[in-house]
Protein backbone atom coordinates (compact mmCIF):
# COMPACT_ATOMS: atom_id res chain seq x y z
CA UNK A 1 0.00 0.00 0.00
CA UNK A 2 2.83 2.40 0.87
CA UNK A 3 4.25 1.74 -2.54
CA UNK A 4 1.05 2.90 -4.23
CA UNK A 5 0.79 5.92 -1.96
CA UNK A 6 4.29 7.08 -2.79
CA UNK A 7 3.61 6.72 -6.50
CA UNK A 8 0.38 8.69 -6.13
CA UNK A 9 2.14 11.42 -4.16
CA UNK A 10 4.92 11.83 -6.69
CA UNK A 11 2.62 11.41 -9.66
CA UNK A 12 0.10 13.98 -8.51
CA UNK A 13 2.74 16.60 -7.65
CA UNK A 14 4.24 16.17 -11.11
CA UNK A 15 0.66 16.12 -12.42
CA UNK A 16 0.40 19.81 -11.55
CA UNK A 17 3.60 20.37 -13.50
CA UNK A 18 2.08 18.37 -16.35
CA UNK A 19 -0.96 20.69 -16.35
CA UNK A 20 1.42 23.58 -17.02
CA UNK A 21 3.20 21.71 -19.77
CA UNK A 22 -0.20 20.78 -21.22
CA UNK A 23 -1.08 24.47 -21.61
CA UNK A 24 2.07 25.33 -23.52
CA UNK A 25 2.66 22.12 -25.45
CA UNK A 26 -0.88 21.04 -26.32
CA UNK A 27 -2.96 24.21 -26.18
CA UNK A 28 -0.52 26.87 -27.31
CA UNK A 29 1.65 24.56 -29.42
CA UNK A 30 4.66 26.24 -27.82
CA UNK A 31 7.63 24.03 -26.84
CA UNK A 32 8.42 25.79 -23.58
CA UNK A 33 11.72 24.85 -21.99
CA UNK A 34 11.33 27.46 -19.24
CA UNK A 35 9.92 24.57 -17.19
CA UNK A 36 13.39 23.26 -16.26
CA UNK A 37 13.98 26.62 -14.60
CA UNK A 38 10.53 27.48 -13.28
CA UNK A 39 10.12 24.16 -11.42
CA UNK A 40 13.15 24.80 -9.18
CA UNK A 41 12.14 28.49 -9.08
CA UNK A 42 9.07 27.45 -7.09
CA UNK A 43 11.37 25.46 -4.80
CA UNK A 44 13.81 28.35 -4.41
CA UNK A 45 11.07 30.84 -3.54
CA UNK A 46 9.65 28.36 -1.04
CA UNK A 47 13.06 27.72 0.53
CA UNK A 48 13.65 31.45 0.77
CA UNK A 49 10.30 32.10 2.44
CA UNK A 50 10.21 29.08 4.76
CA UNK A 51 13.71 29.65 6.15
CA UNK A 52 12.58 33.18 7.00
CA UNK A 53 9.56 31.89 8.89
CA UNK A 54 6.84 32.71 6.34
CA UNK A 55 3.55 30.82 6.28
CA UNK A 56 4.00 27.69 4.12
CA UNK A 57 0.61 28.19 2.41
CA UNK A 58 1.63 31.69 1.48
CA UNK A 59 4.71 30.24 -0.19
CA UNK A 60 2.43 28.37 -2.62
CA UNK A 61 0.99 31.65 -3.89
CA UNK A 62 4.40 33.29 -3.98
CA UNK A 63 5.78 30.36 -5.97
CA UNK A 64 2.87 30.57 -8.42
CA UNK A 65 3.41 34.30 -8.92
CA UNK A 66 7.18 33.89 -9.37
CA UNK A 67 6.60 31.18 -11.95
CA UNK A 68 4.01 33.32 -13.73
CA UNK A 69 6.52 36.15 -13.85
CA UNK A 70 9.09 33.83 -15.41
CA UNK A 71 6.46 32.81 -17.96
CA UNK A 72 5.72 36.45 -18.76
CA UNK A 73 9.45 37.00 -19.36
CA UNK A 74 9.61 34.04 -21.77
CA UNK A 75 6.52 35.44 -23.48
CA UNK A 76 7.97 38.93 -23.77
CA UNK A 77 11.24 37.58 -25.17
CA UNK A 78 9.28 35.58 -27.74
CA UNK A 79 6.55 38.08 -28.63
CA UNK A 80 8.23 41.45 -28.24
CA UNK A 81 11.82 40.58 -29.14
CA UNK A 82 10.70 38.12 -31.81
CA UNK A 83 12.97 35.35 -30.58
CA UNK A 84 11.99 31.81 -31.64
CA UNK A 85 9.79 29.95 -29.15
CA UNK A 86 12.31 27.21 -28.37
CA UNK A 87 15.12 29.73 -27.87
CA UNK A 88 13.11 32.03 -25.61
CA UNK A 89 12.50 29.08 -23.32
CA UNK A 90 16.18 28.14 -23.34
CA UNK A 91 17.17 31.73 -22.55
CA UNK A 92 14.82 31.91 -19.56
CA UNK A 93 15.78 28.44 -18.35
CA UNK A 94 19.46 29.42 -18.37
CA UNK A 95 18.80 32.73 -16.65
CA UNK A 96 16.66 31.08 -14.00
CA UNK A 97 19.51 28.74 -12.97
CA UNK A 98 21.42 31.73 -11.58
CA UNK A 99 18.30 33.49 -10.31
CA UNK A 100 17.30 30.34 -8.39
CA UNK A 101 20.74 30.16 -6.79
CA UNK A 102 20.48 33.82 -5.75
CA UNK A 103 17.01 33.36 -4.31
CA UNK A 104 17.79 30.17 -2.38
CA UNK A 105 21.23 31.38 -1.27
CA UNK A 106 22.95 28.02 -1.76
CA UNK A 107 22.50 24.98 -3.96
CA UNK A 108 21.00 22.84 -1.20
CA UNK A 109 18.59 24.19 1.40
CA UNK A 110 17.26 21.62 3.88
CA UNK A 111 13.82 22.38 5.34
CA UNK A 112 13.71 19.68 8.03
CA UNK A 113 13.29 22.17 10.85
CA UNK A 114 10.72 24.37 9.08
CA UNK A 115 6.95 24.07 9.08
CA UNK A 116 5.67 23.02 5.66
CA UNK A 117 2.24 22.61 4.12
CA UNK A 118 2.49 18.93 5.08
CA UNK A 119 3.84 19.27 8.60
CA UNK A 120 2.65 22.08 10.85
CA UNK A 121 0.88 22.69 14.11
CA UNK A 122 -2.55 23.33 12.61
CA UNK A 123 -2.55 20.15 10.53
CA UNK A 124 -1.73 17.95 13.49
CA UNK A 125 -4.87 19.24 15.18
CA UNK A 126 -7.10 19.03 12.10
CA UNK A 127 -6.21 15.51 10.96
CA UNK A 128 -7.49 12.67 13.13
CA UNK A 129 -4.85 10.20 14.34
CA UNK A 130 -5.87 7.43 11.94
CA UNK A 131 -5.55 9.64 8.87
CA UNK A 132 -2.05 10.94 9.68
CA UNK A 133 -0.19 8.49 7.38
CA UNK A 134 -2.36 9.66 4.50
CA UNK A 135 -2.26 13.36 5.30
CA UNK A 136 0.49 14.09 2.77
CA UNK A 137 -1.38 12.35 -0.03
CA UNK A 138 -4.67 14.01 0.93
CA UNK A 139 -3.11 17.48 0.87
CA UNK A 140 -1.54 16.78 -2.50
CA UNK A 141 -4.90 15.57 -3.84
CA UNK A 142 -6.61 18.72 -2.59
CA UNK A 143 -3.97 20.96 -4.19
CA UNK A 144 -4.13 18.98 -7.41
CA UNK A 145 -7.94 19.21 -7.55
CA UNK A 146 -7.88 22.95 -6.88
CA UNK A 147 -5.32 23.47 -9.67
CA UNK A 148 -7.26 21.25 -12.06
CA UNK A 149 -10.68 22.77 -11.45
CA UNK A 150 -9.39 26.33 -11.58
CA UNK A 151 -7.67 25.56 -14.86
CA UNK A 152 -10.81 23.86 -16.24
CA UNK A 153 -12.87 26.87 -15.19
CA UNK A 154 -10.39 29.26 -16.73
CA UNK A 155 -10.43 27.41 -20.04
CA UNK A 156 -14.20 28.00 -20.15
CA UNK A 157 -13.83 31.76 -19.86
CA UNK A 158 -13.49 34.09 -22.83
CA UNK A 159 -9.77 34.45 -22.19
CA UNK A 160 -9.51 30.65 -21.99
CA UNK A 161 -11.24 30.23 -25.35
CA UNK A 162 -8.84 32.70 -26.94
CA UNK A 163 -5.93 30.74 -25.47
CA UNK A 164 -7.17 27.56 -27.12
CA UNK A 165 -7.79 29.41 -30.36
CA UNK A 166 -4.19 30.66 -30.59
CA UNK A 167 -2.89 27.11 -30.79
CA UNK A 168 -5.68 25.72 -32.99
CA UNK A 169 -6.61 28.54 -35.28
CA UNK A 170 -4.54 31.68 -35.06
CA UNK A 171 -6.53 33.39 -37.83
CA UNK A 172 -9.64 33.29 -35.70
CA UNK A 173 -7.90 35.25 -32.97
CA UNK A 174 -6.74 37.86 -35.45
CA UNK A 175 -10.21 38.08 -36.98
CA UNK A 176 -11.60 38.74 -33.50
CA UNK A 177 -9.23 41.71 -33.41
CA UNK A 178 -7.32 40.23 -30.48
CA UNK A 179 -3.57 40.36 -30.12
CA UNK A 180 -2.33 36.78 -30.17
CA UNK A 181 0.96 37.83 -28.61
CA UNK A 182 -0.79 38.88 -25.41
CA UNK A 183 -2.75 35.65 -25.32
CA UNK A 184 0.49 33.68 -25.59
CA UNK A 185 2.02 35.66 -22.74
CA UNK A 186 -1.01 34.92 -20.54
CA UNK A 187 -0.77 31.23 -21.42
CA UNK A 188 2.94 31.07 -20.63
CA UNK A 189 2.39 32.87 -17.34
CA UNK A 190 -0.33 30.46 -16.29
CA UNK A 191 1.68 27.42 -17.39
CA UNK A 192 4.86 28.39 -15.58
CA UNK A 193 2.86 29.47 -12.55
CA UNK A 194 1.52 25.91 -12.29
CA UNK A 195 4.97 24.41 -12.87
CA UNK A 196 6.44 26.60 -10.17
CA UNK A 197 3.59 25.68 -7.81
CA UNK A 198 4.46 22.02 -8.38
CA UNK A 199 8.09 22.87 -7.57
CA UNK A 200 7.02 24.46 -4.31
CA UNK A 201 4.94 21.43 -3.32
CA UNK A 202 7.71 19.00 -4.30
CA UNK A 203 10.24 20.95 -2.31
CA UNK A 204 8.02 20.95 0.79
CA UNK A 205 7.19 17.28 0.44
CA UNK A 206 10.88 16.38 0.11
CA UNK A 207 11.80 18.96 2.73
CA UNK A 208 14.84 20.06 0.78
CA UNK A 209 15.56 22.45 -2.06
CA UNK A 210 18.20 21.23 -4.49
CA UNK A 211 19.30 23.36 -7.42
CA UNK A 212 19.37 20.38 -9.78
CA UNK A 213 15.74 19.45 -9.05
CA UNK A 214 14.60 20.99 -12.34
CA UNK A 215 16.87 18.96 -14.58
CA UNK A 216 14.66 16.88 -16.81
CA UNK A 217 11.41 18.39 -15.47
CA UNK A 218 10.28 19.19 -19.00
CA UNK A 219 10.86 15.57 -20.06
CA UNK A 220 8.68 14.29 -17.21
CA UNK A 221 6.04 16.91 -18.04
CA UNK A 222 5.99 16.11 -21.76
CA UNK A 223 5.94 12.38 -21.10
CA UNK A 224 2.97 12.77 -18.77
CA UNK A 225 1.06 14.94 -21.24
CA UNK A 226 1.70 12.57 -24.13
CA UNK A 227 0.98 9.40 -22.13
CA UNK A 228 -2.19 10.93 -20.73
CA UNK A 229 -3.57 12.35 -23.93
CA UNK A 230 -2.73 9.36 -26.12
CA UNK A 231 -4.08 6.72 -23.75
CA UNK A 232 -7.29 8.60 -23.11
CA UNK A 233 -7.67 9.91 -26.65
CA UNK A 234 -10.87 7.95 -27.11
CA UNK A 235 -12.42 8.89 -23.81
CA UNK A 236 -14.00 12.20 -24.58
CA UNK A 237 -15.79 11.96 -21.24
CA UNK A 238 -12.49 12.49 -19.52
CA UNK A 239 -11.26 16.07 -19.53
CA UNK A 240 -7.81 16.54 -21.00
CA UNK A 241 -6.63 17.95 -17.67
CA UNK A 242 -7.62 14.75 -15.86
CA UNK A 243 -5.97 12.67 -18.59
CA UNK A 244 -2.73 14.60 -18.18
CA UNK A 245 -2.66 14.14 -14.41
CA UNK A 246 -3.36 10.42 -14.81
CA UNK A 247 -0.56 10.35 -17.38
CA UNK A 248 1.80 11.72 -14.77
CA UNK A 249 0.81 9.05 -12.26
CA UNK A 250 1.34 6.37 -14.91
CA UNK A 251 4.76 7.80 -15.75
CA UNK A 252 5.80 7.75 -12.10
CA UNK A 253 4.47 4.21 -11.77
CA UNK A 254 6.66 3.20 -14.74
CA UNK A 255 9.70 4.73 -13.04
CA UNK A 256 8.85 3.02 -9.76
CA UNK A 257 8.41 -0.36 -11.44
CA UNK A 258 11.70 0.07 -13.29
CA UNK A 259 13.40 1.02 -10.01
CA UNK A 260 11.97 -1.97 -8.18
CA UNK A 261 12.84 -4.65 -10.65
CA UNK A 262 15.89 -3.68 -12.64
CA UNK A 263 19.49 -2.67 -12.19
CA UNK A 264 19.69 1.06 -11.44
CA UNK A 265 21.93 1.60 -14.45
CA UNK A 266 19.26 0.21 -16.73
CA UNK A 267 16.53 2.39 -15.28
CA UNK A 268 16.42 5.14 -17.88
CA UNK A 269 16.34 2.62 -20.70
CA UNK A 270 13.55 0.64 -19.05
CA UNK A 271 11.56 3.81 -18.42
CA UNK A 272 12.01 4.76 -22.07
CA UNK A 273 10.82 1.33 -23.24
CA UNK A 274 7.77 1.40 -20.96
CA UNK A 275 7.03 4.91 -22.21
CA UNK A 276 7.26 3.72 -25.81
CA UNK A 277 5.02 0.72 -25.15
CA UNK A 278 2.36 2.97 -23.66
CA UNK A 279 2.55 5.27 -26.66
CA UNK A 280 2.20 2.41 -29.10
CA UNK A 281 -0.76 1.02 -27.18
CA UNK A 282 -2.31 4.49 -27.37
CA UNK A 283 -1.69 4.73 -31.11
CA UNK A 284 -3.24 1.36 -31.91
CA UNK A 285 -6.34 2.50 -30.20
CA UNK A 286 -6.46 5.56 -32.43
CA UNK A 287 -6.14 3.41 -35.57
CA UNK A 288 -9.03 1.33 -34.37
CA UNK A 289 -11.08 4.47 -34.00
CA UNK A 290 -10.42 5.29 -37.63
CA UNK A 291 -11.37 1.83 -38.91
CA UNK A 292 -14.47 1.93 -36.78
CA UNK A 293 -15.37 5.24 -38.31
CA UNK A 294 -14.70 3.84 -41.80
CA UNK A 295 -16.96 0.87 -41.22
Amino acid sequence: MDFVISIMEQGLIYGILALGVYITYKILDFPDLTVDGSFPLGGAVTAFLLTRGANPYLSLFAAFLAGALAGVCTGLIHVKCRVRDLLSGIIMMTALWTINLYIAGTANVPLFSQETIFKNGILEKVFPEGLQPYSTLLIIIILMLISKFLLDAYLQTKSGYLLRAVGDNATLVISLAKDQGNVKIVGLALANGLVSLAGSIFCQEERVFEISMGTGAIVIGLASVIIGTSIFRKFTMLKATSAVITGSVIYKACVAIALQNFEPQAMKLITAVLFLVILIVGMERRKKVKTDAGA
Partner: peptide, 10 residues
Protein backbone atom coordinates in the same frame (compact mmCIF):
# COMPACT_ATOMS: atom_id res chain seq x y z
CA UNK B 1 16.46 14.45 -7.90
CA UNK B 2 13.07 12.98 -8.81
CA UNK B 3 14.47 9.43 -9.02
CA UNK B 4 16.29 10.02 -5.76
CA UNK B 5 12.99 10.80 -4.03
CA UNK B 6 11.35 7.71 -5.48
CA UNK B 7 14.19 5.44 -4.36
CA UNK B 8 13.84 6.71 -0.79
CA UNK B 9 10.07 6.24 -0.86
CA UNK B 10 10.55 2.74 -2.27
Amino acid sequence: TATNAQIADG
